[in-house]
Structures are given as C-alpha cells and as structure tokens.
Design a protein around this nucleic acid. Structure first.
Lengths: 333, 333
DNA sequence: ATGAAAGCGCTAACAT
DNA sequence: ATGTTAGCGCTTTCAT
C-alpha cells in the first residue's frame, strides 16, 4: 500500500468504495436516501483509509463552521473556569468546538479577539464583556451573529443575557452585616466601571442608605492596587470600619491578603461576593454570596444554540439567583 | 448602497478597487511586490466594504488553519487555568487561535476530542494527557502533527514534553517533614495511574525508605472518594499519622476539607504539592511545592511553535524546577 | 438511489 | 507589478 503524503479525502473514499463523490458525501452527512449496502461499502472504505473529513472544507461550502467563540476577561477567576467548563460540555454535545480567548479585561484586546473570531467564521459568541460602559459588539460582528453575554447585562436588544441578581444579593449581604450591629461597613471592589461592580455597589449603598449610614467604598482600577497600604489607610483613621464586603473573587483575594499583612483578618466581619474552594477553611469560615457559575455557563450556551438552530429570535434575559452562604465571618457563630 | 445578504469577499474587494483578485490577495498577504498606490486603493476598498478575510477559505487553500488544539483533564484546577492563559498569550502573538477542550480525565473523551481537533485541521496540539498508562496520540493524529505534552512525561520520541521535577520535589518536601521529627507521614493522592501521582509517590517513598520508615499511602480513583471517612480511617488507628503530604491541588482540597470535618487541620503537619490563592491564609499557613504553571504553558506553546515554523525536528524534554515554599504547616514556626 | 458539474473564498502556479 | 487559471475538500443544484 502506497503511503500518501497527504491525508485521504472524500474523493479517495469514493474511489475506494467504487461510488461517486456525491454518494460518499451523502454517507458523511447521514443522508436518508441511501442504499444500505452502498452505505456499508462507503463506511468500510472510510474506516480502511482512516478517513477524517476536513471540517474547514465542509464549513466553507456549507457556511457552517461548527465553532463558537468565547471571550472572558479573567481566566484565573474560578468563576470563569467553571463557566467555561459548562459551555464546553454543552458545545460538545452539539458537536461544536469552542475557540476560547481571554481579553484580560482590555477593551482593545477584546475587539481584536472578536475580529479574529469573526474571521474564523464562528457561528455564535459567548462573552463576558470586558467593560460595562458601552456595547460595540454589533459594530464588529455585524447583525447576524448570535451573541450571549454573561456576567454582565448589555442593553443591546439583539444580545441575550445571563446574569445574577447582583444588586439584591449585595443588599441582602450588607443587610445581614447590619443585623450583626455593624455600621461601618467598607465595600471593596476592583474595576469600578464594570457592570457587576456597579450593581453590587448599588446594592451596598441601598442597604446603607436604608439605615442612613454613610457609605465607605474602596474601588481600585487594577487588582494590584489592592495593597495593604490602600486597605490599611481605612484602618488607620480613628473611625475604622468594623466589617468588609468584598465585591468579587479578585477583590476578596486582594483584601484577605492585605488583612493578613495587617493582622486584621479574623478580628473583623467579612462577606465575599463569590465563593471559592477553602472559603470554609479560613478562620473564621468565610460567609459568601455564591453565584451559580456552572449554571450560568450552561444556560448561556443553551441560549446560543437556541438561536443557532433557528428556534428563537426574541431576546432572552435570564437572571439567576445567588445563594447566601452564611458561615462565620459575618459574625454568626 | 445595497445591503448584501452575504459578507463581502475578496472578489468584491478586487472589483471595488478595480484590480484583479490576485492583487487583492497579495495585499491581504502583505506581498512585497506591490505598487504602493495599488495597495492603498485595495486597502481603502477593504475598509470601505468592512471586509474580513474568511480564515476557513484561506486555511483550506493554504493548508494552514492557524489554529492549535489544547486538551486538559481538569479545568477547575488553578494550575490548568494558569497554563491555558500562558498558551493563549503565546498563540495570540503568533496569530493563532486555540481550540480548547477538557477531557475530564476520561481517556475515551480525550480520544474523541483529539479526533475532532484533527478534523478541524489544527496545526499543533498541546495536551496534558488524561492517563499515564500508554500513549495513543500518534495512532489518532498521525505522524505529522506536532504535539507537546505538559504536566506529564510521555515516552514517544516524537512528542515534546514539559514537566517539573516531580520526584525530587516530593522527596525534598517529605525530607523536610522528616527533619521536623515526623515519622508517620501519610501521602494522599487522586488518580494513582497518572504520571505526576506515580512520580510524587515515588519521591515520597524514596524519602521514607532512606529513613527506613514504613510507607502510608492513600490513593483514590476519584476526587469524590476523598471523604472524611476515607481519611479518618487512618486516624482512628492507634498508630495515627503525624503529617500529611498531599500530592496535588485536588488532593489538597479534598484532604483539607476532610480534616476540617475531623477537626484535624492545624494539629497536624501538612505540605501540599501545588500552591494556590490563600494557601498562606490558612491557619497554619500552608507549606507548598509550587509549580511554575504559567512558565510551563508558555514553554509548551513555544516548543510547539518551534516545530510549526519548521525550526526543529529533534524532541525536547524540558524539566522545570519547582519552588519549595516553607510557611508554617510543615512545622516551621 | 446515485452521479456530473459547479462553486464556497481563497491561494498558487504560471503567465504577461 | 499585475492578471489568468486552476483547484484546496467539500456540499449542492440538477440530472438520471
């Protein structure tokens, strides 16, 4: 048997099976109008040649890349990893590949990645937007590409959204601190512009305002600005906070690290928006607002495929509920 | 202007610019032999039409998909996320997309994913193999596809490898526990068959054997088998362990959770293979073996591109060093 | 139920 | 420096 330098094509399969190209193609696409005997011959030929269809060629002709794109701002966040895993699972079940990229929260990078994904003929996009300010997706991808945004609500009526009840959950968490008699609650967040941060701050403010308490907010542009100095500044005043509400995982990590350096964790009430492995192992065990991250990923993917299969044209805006996990750091024994 | 139902092609660009298709193609590929004025006209036409090259078509003709595949067994592990991020960064710089999938540590899933990636004409593969037993990659992907394995060494001489000094690092960690006078050290691991687990257990055994101490090993097939009962069994014997060496992040999480339920953490020496956020926040702060995960991802990607650009044909086997981070849980104050 | 021919959007000889 | 022609591997009319 002659070793070909290039992989076998459908033409090779057809020749091997003694049928026409079209018939081989029909087998590949599981066409119904086929003589079972013919089909068997073709399948045997495929197996014999170890034939793999070239998805690029299929996609080119059929205008169907069988790929979706996914863009997230921050991969280190366990929330993101969980979401991605869920998306992969749904996509696999549908026979779709996921072209995955990270924007690092950088708008220009996000735009560049978006452009590349479009060139690669993705059929749909799942995105956790890098910025909350305004939405430029449609100007880059055109009007035809189905898009699902998660984590962040976008106002564009052509984009499905999967978010959680950020504001309400934040308010509930802060109210819980208030019931423990805390009055000087500091909210700590990263990237003040993004949707989730804005919403959670709003929830915090609502709770504080209801008790006519002054707001204390520390919002930094970048994770690395969440230094012990930045946090410590609040504690060197004589009117130091008696509780901290951190607005996401990144903020929690930074704040906890800073508190450790300041020897302040353990002596202060703390609630984290976002749960994570070992939150319960800290002393005291961390009280958290948990987002259903896998659920968000699954639903985002399913919304996308609803559109891809043409089943739906009206926008869906799914808002999931968080769970408030009371452990000890809020002040509960 | 008439709204076309389909996206503009290079033919449209050529017509708009009043040049031939080939000239437009030359502009797209930054060919050198071009009249600057012509090039300008073409670029303007591209901009006017908002033209995006179809990468599927380019790849079909040029036999160059500009995509690599990446398969990992476990996405929730922060080690993996860090590696993926590094790979994405390198790939982006080269203009390559990453088609990412997770095998969930399942060999048959891994095979299926591999097959799909080949059909999508990936030009290279980065993989953290699901199993250590034997290597079947070449039988699925053929001999031509460059492959880099990371985390796990594979013997196939055509596959580059990026690993760490697992055995030595494990031995060093256990020796450190021994210097603290610990003699009844329990090694805890998940998935006994995989390469890293085997190597780390070997390092543990070397250190114990050097002191003529008996080995105590708890290896479970699945993460969920790392229950408080499974761990507790060792502590209900009268000859209970005085230290624990957990063999990776997953094992650390499971073991720490179990110890908390048993009220055993804090009273026992502990070293984790794999560092993670907040390891230093536990009480006592966790002593760990840290893998250079981002570095591993970066190097894996670079090795792959070395082969893709044709620069290298001999196999490289890169073994990176871990860092032993002594905090408190090992027994050091 | 099967086949012949055209062409998806692009690149690559081989012109000129 | 630019154009003509063919064809990547597949699907899709339109025949038969």
């Amino acid at each position: 048997m002659i070793r070909r330098s290039t992989a076998p094509t459908l033409v090779d399969v057809a020749r091997e099976a003694g049928v026409s190209l079209k018939t081989a193609s029909r087998v590949l696409n599981n066409s119904s109008e086929l003589n079972p005997a013919t089909e068997k011959r073709v399948r045997e030929a495929m197996a014999r040649l170890d034939y793999r269809p070239n998805e690029l060629a299929r996609g080119l002709k059929a205008r169907r890349s069988a790929a979706i794109g996914m863009i997230v701002p921050n991969l280190s966040d366990p929330f993101t990893a969980s979401t991605l895993q869920a998306v992969l699972t749904v996509a696999r079940a549908r026979g779709y590949a996921v072209i995955f990229t990270s924007s690092s929260g950088d708008e220009s990078l996000e735009k560049a990645e978006l452009d590349l994904l479009v060139r690669r003929q993705i059929e749909g996009l799942i995105v956790a937007p890098a910025l909350g300010k305004k939405n430029y997706f449609r100007s880059i991808v055109g009007t035809r590409l189905p898009i699902v945004a998660f984590d962040q609500f976008v106002s564009d009526k052509s984009i499905d959204c999967v978010t959680v009840n950020n504001r309400e959950a934040a308010r509930t968490a802060v109210e819980h601190l208030l019931t423990h008699g805390k009055k000087k609650i500091l909210a700590v967040g990263v990237r003040p512009d993004i949707y989730t941060c804005v919403e959670r701050v709003a929830g915090y403010c609502e709770a504080m305002a209801a008790e006519k308490l002054p707001e204390r907010v520390l919002l930094v542009e970048d994770e690395k600005d969440l230094t012990p100095e930045a946090i410590g500044k609040f504690f060197r005043k004589k009117d130091a906070p008696d509780a901290i509400f951190s607005l996401n995982w990144v903020a929690s990590m930074g704040t906890l690290r800073a508190l450790r350096d300041l020897h302040g964790f353990g002596s202060m009430a703390f609630i984290s928006f976002d749960d994570f492995e070992l939150a319960e192992m800290l002393s005291p065990a961390l009280t958290v607002v948990r987002q259903p991250s896998a659920e968000m990923g699954r639903i985002a993917a399913e919304l996308l495929f609803e559109r891809l299969t043409g089943g739906r044209t009206v926008r869906k805006n799914v808002v999931l509920s968080t769970e408030f996990h009371i452990r000890q750091s809020c002040g509960c024994s």
